[in-house]
Design a protein around this nucleic acid. Structure first.
Length: 227
DNA sequence: CCAGACGTTGTT
DNA sequence: GTCTGG
DNA sequence: CCAGACGTTGTT
DNA sequence: GTCTGG
C-alpha cells in the first residue's frame, strides 16, 4: 500500500523529467497525506501533457457526497480495470504522479508501534507512480481527484510490506498516458513491481506518523530500534 | 422491476 | 454510471 | 497511511 | 471501536 510519500524535487526538475511547459507553484514536501492536494501529470483533450493539482483519494463521478473515502487512495492493479470505482478512469483518465520516495509502516513482532520506512530509487531521484484521476461535478462545484495504483511487493519491499505502489520507468510514461482504452493487455503489463535492484529502503523516525510533520526529519535514516 | 453498492488494508 | 441482489 | 476526536444540556 | 482530518 502507499499512504504517504514525498516530493522534494523542484519545478524545473519536474518539467524536465515529465516534458512539461509549466507546473503549478510547488513547495518541497516530505510528508504528503491522503486528502491533500497533489500534482499529477495527465493529457489534455488535445493530447498535450499538463500538470495540475488534484485531491488524493479518488472520488467517483457518481458519488453523492464529495467526501474523500480513504479506501480509494489506492487501487489494486489486479482489479483496477473492472472495479466500478476505477474502470472508467482506467480506460481514459490515467496519470503520472511525481514522487521521490514513499513510506511504509512495518509491523514489529512484539511491539505495538510500527516502524516506518522510506522507500525510493537507489539514487534518491524522482520517479512516477501510475495513477488514475477523476472529475466530480454537481451544479457549480467541480472536484478533481486521483488514486495511486498498487501491486504485489518486490523482493526488497516485501521485507516491509506485501504491497507496493506501481512505479513507471520514463520509457513507459507515454504509453501509460496515451494507450487506447482497449489496449488493456499493454496497460496491465505496465502495472508490475519495479525492480528491487534499482531501489532502496531504510528506517526513519516516527516523526512521519503525524501529517503535521513535513520536514527533512521525515526522511532521515535512523536505527531500527529507535523508532 | 427497484434498491443499494461501488474500496483497500489490516486484524480478528 | 453500471452492476448485483432481492 | 496515522492522529485525534468522539456529546448534550443548561447556565453564565 | 470507528470515523474524520491532514
Amino acid at each position: 500500500m502507499c499512504g504517504r510519500y514525498s516530493l522534494r524535487a523542484e519545478e524545473g526538475r519536474i518539467m524536465r523529467q515529465f516534458e512539461l511547459y509549466q507546473t503549478p507553484r510547488l513547495i518541497r514536501r516530505y510528508n504528503i497525506a491522503p486528502s491533500q492536494s497533489i500534482p499529477i501529470v495527465r493529457l489534455t483533450p488535445d493530447g498535450q501533457r499538463e500538470c495540475v493539482m488534484v485531491r488524493w483519494g479518488l472520488l467517483p463521478s457518481w458519488s453523492k457526497e464529495p467526501k474523500t473515502d480513504y479506501s480509494t487512495i489506492n487501487a489494486r492493479a489486479e482489479t483496477v480495470a473492472t472495479k466500478p470505482a476505477f474502470r472508467t478512469a482506467f480506460r481514459s483518465r490515467r496519470c503520472l504522479i511525481p514522487a521521490d520516495g514513499y513510506y511504509e509502516w512495518a509491523v514489529r513482532p512484539g511491539s505495538k508501534t510500527k516502524q516506518p520506512y522510506y522507500i525510493g530509487l537507489q539514487d534518491g531521484e524522482m520517479f512516477a507512480f501510475a495513477g488514475l484521476w477523476e472529475r466530480w461535478q454537481r451544479e457549480d462545484t467541480v472536484i478533481e481527484s486521483c488514486t495511486i495504483i498498487v501491486t504485489e511487493a518486490n523482493e526488497l519491499t516485501r521485507t516491509i510490506h506485501d504491497r507496493m505502489p506501481v512505479i513507471l520507468g520514463e520509457r513507459d510514461y507515454a504509453s501509460w498516458l496515451s494507450a487506447a482504452a482497449r489496449q488493456t493487455e499493454l496497460l496491465q503489463s505496465l502495472l508490475k513491481p519495479f525492480p528491487s535492484e534499482r531501489m532502496r529502503a531504510y528506517p526513519v523516525s516516527t516523526a512521519v506518523n503525524s501529517p503535521r510533520n513535513d520536514s527533512e526529519t521525515c526522511i532521515k535514516a535512523v536505527d531500527e530500534e529507535s523508532g
